[in-house]
């Protein structure tokens, strides 16, 4: 629950940042577009699992709609503040890699399972265009780093739950766990700088 709320918080921090500064400067459009694709391909199950958990279903709808709305704002209201020249990560490799893994190692060869596996792997690397952009500019607004931290910590917080499920309930989900570890690992140096600089009131600047 804390992880999911952190995920939810990250989306609201991002929207709040855009409203507050009337700008989407420093936010990677590519990463945001990849997240929308992640949510749409994973949460197709809304159509047949809606009544299994209203908590999950409501959050799925919120994630899809907030993500679509963020993209809408970036493409319309705040379009002039987005600089495509620094958002140059080649996201096609991420899409291709996630697609290949989904085709080779799905749990079952059904359209829904293939899309689910694709979305899990794509989510694990969807932040790369954003991190690449931060690395190119060498710094980030504090509010952008809060967004990245809330988004990064959410998958890390799933890890203790996976351990609890494995040892107490006796089951596991290797694809989700492996992809979740990759996703968390990608944030490690970001977390380090966030912890040593932003938490101490300093500006986020790369060494």
């Amino acid at each position: 629950v804390v992880a999911d709320l952190s995920h939810l918080l990250s989306i609201f921090i991002l929207l709040h940042k855009m409203y507050l500064t009337k700008s989407c400067a420093g936010i990677s459009f590519k990463s945001q577009a990849l997240y929308l694709l992640v949510y749409v391909t994973r949460y197709l199950d809304l159509f047949w699992t809606f009544n299994k958990s209203h908590y999950n279903s409501v959050l799925k709808i919120v994630f899809i709609s907030a993500s679509a709305y963020t993209l809408y704002l970036m493409k319309n209201e705040y379009r002039p503040t987005h600089d495509p020249n620094i958002d140059t990560f080649k996201s096609r490799y991420l899409l291709a890699g996630a697609a290949v893994l989904a085709i080779i190692f799905p749990y079952k060869y059904t359209p829904a399972e293939l899309l689910w596996t694709f979305s899990i792997w794509l989510e694990s690397v969807a932040i790369l265009p954003q991190l690449f952009m931060v690395q190119r500019t060498g710094e980030a607004e504090t509010i952008t780093t809060h967004y990245l931290f809330a988004l990064g910590i959410y998958r890390a917080l799933y890890i203790p739950n996976w351990l609890w499920r494995y040892f107490v309930k006796g089951y596991t989900d290797p694809i989700a766990v492996l992809a979740g570890l990759v996703q968390t690992a990608l944030y490690c140096d970001f977390f380090y700088i966030y912890w040593t600089k932003v938490m101490k009131g300093k500006k986020f600047e790369l060494p």
């Binding site: 999911d4 995920h7 199950d45 699992t49 299994k52 958990s53 999950n56 959050l59 799925k60 994630f63 749990y107 689910w116 799933y158 499920r165 309930k169 006796g170 089951y171 596991t172 989900d173 290797p174 989700a176």
Partner: peptide, 10 residues
């Protein structure tokens, strides 16, 4: 490996 219920995570 015993796989858990799929749709209880986001």
């Amino acid at each position: 490996v015993v796989q858990g219920p799929r749709h209880d995570e986001l």
